[in-house]
Lab assay of single mutants.
Amino acid sequence: DLPPEQWSHTTVRNALKDLLKDMNQSSLAKECPLSQSMISSIVNSTYYANVSAAKCQEFGRWYKHFKKTK
């Protein structure tokens, strides 16, 4: 379990794929700090720029909290 400071584009993509087993992209976009188009691009590997470090950390913090509450 990585601390949010160490999250990267790959970590975010893997976490998104895991979350999308249980929910669809639009529900996920309402919950998490990423937009639906960004989620779609990341999981389909069409998001060519890497997600910014700040966004990765924000998502990492959100993901840890989300997993605790589920």
Results as ranks from 00 to 15, higher is better:
Phe59Trp: 00
Lys67Trp: 05
Phe66Ala: 08
Ala29Cys: 09
Arg61Trp: 06
Arg61Gln: 13
Leu19Pro: 01
Trp7Met: 03
Asp1Leu: 06
Phe59Asn: 02
Met23Val: 10
Pro33Val: 01
Ser40Lys: 11
Ala53Arg: 09
Val12Lys: 01
Pro4Lys: 09
Val12Asp: 02
Gly60Tyr: 02
Asn44Tyr: 03
Lys67Cys: 12
Ala53Ser: 06
Ile39Ser: 00
Trp7Thr: 03
His9Val: 12
Gln25Glu: 14
Gln36Ile: 08
Tyr48Trp: 06
Ala54Gln: 09
His65Thr: 13
Tyr63Thr: 00
Ala29Ser: 09
Ser41Leu: 08
Thr46His: 15
Lys55Val: 13
Ser35Asn: 09
Pro3Met: 14
Asn50His: 15
Ser37Met: 05
Pro33Glu: 02
Pro4Glu: 14
Ser52Asp: 05
His65Ser: 15
Arg61Thr: 13
Ser37Gln: 14
Gln6Ser: 13
Gln25Leu: 15
Lys68Ala: 05
Ala54Leu: 07
Lys68Ile: 04
Lys55Ser: 09
Leu34Trp: 05
Lys70Gln: 11
Pro4Phe: 07
His9Ala: 10
Arg61Ala: 09
Glu31Met: 05
Phe59Lys: 01
Lys21Cys: 08
Ala15Lys: 06
Trp62Lys: 00
Ile39Gln: 01
Ser8Gly: 11
Glu58Tyr: 00
Gln36Lys: 10
Ser45Phe: 03
Leu28Ser: 01
Ser37Ile: 11
Tyr47Lys: 09
Thr10Asn: 06
Cys56Ile: 13
Asn14Tyr: 07
Ala54Arg: 13
Lys67Thr: 06
Thr11Met: 12
Met38Trp: 06
Cys32Phe: 02
Gln57Val: 13
His65Cys: 06
Tyr48Pro: 12
Gly60Val: 08
Leu19Lys: 00
Ser41Tyr: 06
Val43Thr: 07
Val43Pro: 00
Ser26Met: 13
Ala53Glu: 08
Tyr48Arg: 13
Ile42Val: 11
Thr11Phe: 04
Leu16Asn: 00
Gln6His: 03
Ala29Met: 06
Trp62Thr: 01
Leu34Met: 08
Glu31Lys: 15
Asn24Cys: 03
Pro4Ile: 13
Asn14Glu: 13
Leu16Glu: 03
Tyr47Met: 06
Gln57Glu: 12
Asn24Ala: 09
Phe66Ile: 05
Gly60His: 05
Tyr48Val: 08
Tyr63Cys: 01
Phe66Glu: 04
Lys30Ser: 11
Asp22Lys: 11
Glu58Leu: 05
Lys70Asn: 06
Lys64Thr: 10
Ser26Gln: 08
Ala29Lys: 03
Thr10Cys: 13
Ile42Pro: 00
Thr11Gly: 06
Leu34Val: 03
Leu28Ala: 03
Glu31Asn: 10
Lys64Pro: 02
Tyr47Thr: 10
Gly60Ala: 12
Ser8Ile: 04
Cys32Glu: 00
Trp7Tyr: 04
Ser37Thr: 14
Asp22Ser: 15
Gln57Tyr: 08
Asp18Gln: 12
His9Leu: 15
Leu28Phe: 09
Pro33Cys: 04
Ser37Trp: 09
Ser27Phe: 08
Glu5Leu: 06
Pro3Tyr: 05
Ala54Asp: 09
Asp22Val: 11
Ala49Leu: 08
Cys56Thr: 04
Asn24Ser: 09
Pro33Ala: 01
Thr11Glu: 15
Lys30Cys: 04
Ile42Met: 12
Tyr47Asp: 03
Gln36Ser: 13
Ser40Gln: 13
Asp22Ile: 11
Pro3Ile: 08
Ile39Lys: 03
Ile42Phe: 07
Thr11Ser: 07
Ser35Val: 00
Gln6Gly: 06
Asp18Asn: 14
Gln6Ala: 13
Lys68Tyr: 07
Asn14His: 04
Lys67Glu: 09
Ser8Phe: 06
Lys64Gly: 08
Cys56Asp: 00
Ser52Val: 00
Ala54Lys: 08
Leu20Met: 03
Cys56His: 04
Leu19Glu: 03
Ser27Lys: 14
Ser35Tyr: 00
Arg61Phe: 06
Asn14Cys: 11
Asp22Asn: 10
His65Asn: 14
Leu34His: 01
Ser52Gly: 08
Asp18Ile: 11
Met38Phe: 01
Pro33Phe: 01
Thr69Tyr: 03
Phe66Pro: 01
Arg61Lys: 13
Ile39Val: 08
Tyr63Gly: 01
Lys30Ala: 10
Asp22Gly: 10
Glu31Leu: 05
Ala53Asp: 12
Ala49Lys: 14
Gln6Ile: 12
Asn14Ser: 11
Thr11Ile: 08
Arg61Pro: 01
Arg61Ile: 10
Ser41Gly: 10
Arg13Trp: 03
Thr46Cys: 10
Thr69Met: 06
Gln36His: 15
Tyr63Leu: 04
Ser37His: 15
Ala49His: 10
Leu34Lys: 00
Ala15Arg: 04
Ala54Asn: 05
Thr11Cys: 04
Thr69Ser: 04
Ile42Gly: 01
Trp62Ser: 00
Arg61His: 04
Leu19Phe: 05
Asn44Phe: 05
Ser35Trp: 00
Trp7Pro: 00
Lys68Asn: 13
Arg13Ile: 02
Ile42Ala: 03
Cys56Arg: 08
Lys21Met: 14
Lys67Ala: 04
Leu34Glu: 01
Gln36Met: 13
Ser37Ala: 14
Lys21Ile: 14
Thr69Gln: 08
Ser52Lys: 06
Ala54Cys: 05
Gln57Asp: 08
Thr69Gly: 05
Lys21Val: 07
Lys68Met: 12
Ser41Ala: 10
Gln57Asn: 10
Ser40Arg: 11
Tyr47Arg: 10
Asn24Tyr: 02
Gln57Trp: 07
Ser41His: 15
Ser37Tyr: 06
Asp18Lys: 12
Ser35Lys: 09
Ser52His: 05
Cys56Met: 10
Trp7Glu: 01
Phe66Gly: 04
Asn44Pro: 01
Glu58Arg: 02
Phe59Ala: 00
Thr46Phe: 13
Thr11Asp: 15
Ala53Lys: 14
Tyr47Gln: 06
Leu34Gln: 01
Ala49Thr: 10
Leu20Ala: 04
Ser26Phe: 05
Asp22Gln: 10
Lys21Ala: 06
Cys32Trp: 01
Gln57Ile: 11
Asp22Met: 08
Arg13Met: 04
Gly60Asn: 01
Ser37Cys: 12
Asn50Pro: 11
Asn44Cys: 12
Leu20Phe: 02
Ser35Met: 00
Leu19Cys: 15
Gly60Glu: 09
Leu28Asp: 02
Thr11Pro: 00
Pro4Leu: 09
Lys67Asp: 08
Glu58Met: 06
Asp1Glu: 10
Gly60Thr: 04
Tyr63Arg: 00
Ser8Gln: 15
Pro33Arg: 03
Asn14Leu: 14
Leu34Thr: 01
Lys21Gln: 13
Lys67Asn: 15
Ser41Phe: 09
Trp7His: 00
Cys56Gly: 01
Lys68Glu: 12
Met38Ile: 05
Gln25Trp: 12
Ser26Tyr: 08
Ser27Pro: 02
Asn24Met: 03
Ala53Phe: 11
Lys21Thr: 09
Tyr47Glu: 09
Asn50Arg: 10
Ser35His: 12
Ala49Ile: 06
Lys68Pro: 05
Ser37Arg: 11
Asn50Asp: 08
Ser41Pro: 03
Ile42Glu: 01
